[in-house]
Amino acid sequence: MKPEKIMVRLALVLLVGATALAGAASAQAATQSEFEAAYRAATEAEQKASALRNQWTPTEAALEAAAKAAAAKDYGTAMDLARRAEALAEASVEQAKEQDKLWQNAVLK
């Protein structure tokens, strides 16, 4: 293999590694305020699901686990969990909106 190609490949490997490290560092470096913002967004989404009477148990579990991780000052984990809770809550809201009409297709006729 030509030295230029080796250099290009090495540079790519370094770039991928650096990106992964930066990502991990950012998760570790999540601050309390960043977590609080993510948690607030998740809670708001879950309130919408509650208003539609369609909450999911994994959303509640993720919110609870996020609060526990934050209490242990593990803001990286807490933020990941809060983001997961928000995604789940949004999916449950979407499900409720879709099913508001789609249920009629399942009715025995």
Binding site: W56, Q99, D100, W103, A106
Partner: peptide
């Protein structure tokens, strides 16, 4: 009650009818 029976809910996306009709 009819709507509740036929509408899908939960992360597994099941309705009452998914199991007890279909």
């Amino acid at each position: 009650g009819k709507k509740f029976f036929y509408e899908r809910r939960g992360q597994l996306n099941f309705s009452c009818a998914s199991c007890h009709v279909q």
